[in-house]
Each structure stands twice: as structure tokens, then as C-alpha cells.
Amino acid sequence: CDTDFERWIYVLKNMETLNRMPFTARKSVFEKLEKIVDIASLSKEERIKYNESIKVYRDNLVTMEFAEQKGRAEGLVEGIERGLAQGLEKGRAEGKIEERRTIALQMKRMGMPVSSISEVTGLSQSEIDGL
């Protein structure tokens, strides 16, 4: 057989008598055909067992995929929660600093001494001078 067409004709013509599919090393199509023929030649009991094993295999794949997706979703939720908590914490800290600066500026405008402002707000004298 030189062409794929000739190979197909040969295989289809001699399928019942072939123990092993020819040309498998040369064409992957014939390997797939060999698997189909093997499954088709199973007895009723063997086919039931085969179908059950395929079902178990597919169920395991689906279960693993679901667990993976669930893990990703849970990780995403946890990551978002952590990010929000960190963002809120950082925002509160920045807000406190800004509030201290605002109070220090008001005290400075009222003419209070820098040392008193520093003592009340916790800001350094150089920060108060920079306001």
C-alpha cells in the first residue's frame, strides 16, 4: 500500500482477519482505528466494565477540575479580603497622619509654640515648620 486510500481499503477489507493493525508506525489514524476496533470487539460484559471504567475516569477528571476551580475561587476571595484589609489599614494610618498635620497647622495659625504643637500631635519640629 502506497497511499492512504490504499491503506484504508486494505484495512477495511481485512479487518476481521487482522490480529494487528498494519501501518501503525506510519499513521496515527490507524492507531485510533485500532482502538475503535478493539472496543467494538469486546463482549457485552467486557464493554460494560470498559464503560464503567471510562465513567469513573471521567468522573475523577471532573472532580479534580472542580476542586481546582473551587480552590482558585477560594484563593481569590481570600486574596481580595487580605488586600482590602491591608488597604483599609494603610488608609487609616495615612488619614491619622493627615489629621495630625491639619491639627498642627491650625495650632500653628493660632500662634502656639512649635514645641507644644509637637507634643500634642506627635509630629517632629521639622514637619511642623514645613507646614
Rank of each mutant, 00 (worst) to 15 (best):
L18P: 03
V114S: 03
S126F: 08
T121M: 06
D129L: 13
R72E: 03
V56W: 08
S126I: 14
S43A: 08
T17E: 09
L61H: 04
T17F: 07
A67P: 00
D38W: 15
W8G: 01
E6M: 11
D4C: 06
E81P: 00
G91Q: 07
S41Q: 10
S124C: 05
M107W: 02
R82C: 02
K55L: 09
E74L: 10
I103P: 01
E81D: 07
R7K: 15
T24N: 06
V120N: 02
G83M: 05
A85Q: 06
G122Q: 06
V11F: 11
N19T: 12
V114C: 01
V37E: 02
I48R: 13
N60G: 14
R82T: 10
E52T: 11
E6F: 04
K35C: 02
V11D: 04
S124T: 15
S116V: 14
D4W: 10
S116W: 08
I128Q: 02
I48G: 01
R101F: 11
F5K: 14
W8N: 04
L18M: 13
G111S: 01
N60R: 13
I97S: 02
G87I: 10
E127L: 08
S115K: 14
A73L: 14
D129T: 13
E119V: 05
E78A: 15
E52Y: 11
S43Q: 06
E89H: 06
K70N: 03
L12H: 13
E31G: 11
G130Q: 14
N14T: 09
L33M: 10
I117H: 02
G87C: 05
N14S: 05
N51D: 09
L131D: 00
E89T: 13
L105C: 04
E45L: 10
L33F: 14
R82N: 13
Q86G: 02
I9P: 00
P22G: 03
D2T: 09
S53R: 14
I80N: 00
K55Q: 10
D59A: 09
L61N: 05
G95M: 07
I80H: 00
G111I: 01
K13C: 01
K35W: 07
S115R: 14
V62W: 08
T24A: 03
L123D: 00
E45F: 05
V77C: 01
R101C: 07
I48K: 13
S53Q: 15
K49V: 08
A25L: 09
V114Q: 04
E68K: 15
I9V: 13
G130S: 15
V11S: 05
K90I: 04
A104P: 04
Q125S: 11
G87S: 04
E31M: 10
K32H: 06
V56E: 12
F23W: 12
K96M: 13
V56Y: 09
F5D: 12
I39Y: 12
I103D: 01
K44L: 11
Q106P: 00
I80Y: 02
K13I: 04
R26S: 12
G130P: 00
A93T: 09
I128L: 01
K90V: 02
G122E: 01
S28Q: 08
